[in-house]
Design a protein around this nucleic acid. Structure first.
Lengths: 123, 123
DNA sequence: AACTAATAACCGGATAACCGGATATTGTCA
DNA sequence: TGACAATATCCGGTTATCCGGTTATTAGTT
């Protein structure tokens, strides 16, 4: 059951849960979005995203300089059910709701800066 | 989301998964059963059982010298759903099926030794 | 090619998890 | 009460995890 233990281990970290929670809300996000919304180091954001990538939770898609990530579980799979259950648990948590509002604000602010084009300039 | 992370952490250990899997099959087991079936140290068995106890996954019931444990999630709760999902994942795994057969054998052997009474003598 | 932004990989260091063996505790029975 | 079985806890050692800071890579721009 090593495989199953590892599956849970991949969810046993608050930062990874937050990332997944954001990706459940937004379909696709780049690393700098996640840094910004969660207020964490680039190093930290990237590390956890690669972790999730190597375990198959997310796929990456390069768009120029940006690297976009999105959830990649196949519908109906155990992983998919697990995510749905997680969403079910989190949706009632104020903490999680605030995170999503924070995400909306972040994306809105990003959208304003010159429409569409390179609006990141993550510092 | 610290709470949720810890929930997954409690499942992120192969030994604990095995213990839970056994308790899903058998309703109630004592420490020495778990030691025997899983082939682990007494120290290890007890430690993980206390861990699960403190997190509310199981309750304990003393019966003389024995300490019996059983699952204690309330029906319909997120934890209950999580266990059901886990069971769903594990039931198709040969490894898990063998574990249950092993459990049956162990209990059968235990039952033979003088019927009902102290049949453990775990060494 | 040089420069820069975004990201990934690497590198100690701190902390936490897990383990086996030893010891302490609890209950039973003679 | 003394001996013993079952279990919990303690101790130290080993390994895994997580982190921030640094460096390397990749793509776009001039």
């Amino acid at each position: 059951m090593k495989k199953e233990a590892q599956l849970f281990k991949s969810l046993a970290d608050e930062t990874r849960l937050r990332i997944i929670w954001l990706l459940m809300a937004k379909e696709e996000l780049c690393v700098c979005d996640i840094m910004g919304v969660l207020g964490i180091t680039q190093s930290k954001a990237s590390r956890h995203l690669r972790y999730l990538y190597h375990l198959g939770w997310v796929t990456d898609r390069r768009a120029g300089v940006w690297m976009n990530y999105r959830l990649s579980v196949s519908p109906g799979s155990p992983e998919d059910k697990q995510l749905k259950l997680l969403a079910d648990i989190l949706k009632s948590r104020p903490e999680a709701q605030e995170l999503r509002e924070h995400l909306e604000q972040w994306l809105a602010a990003k959208g304003q800066d010159k429409e569409g084009a390179a609006a990141c300039q993550c510092r």
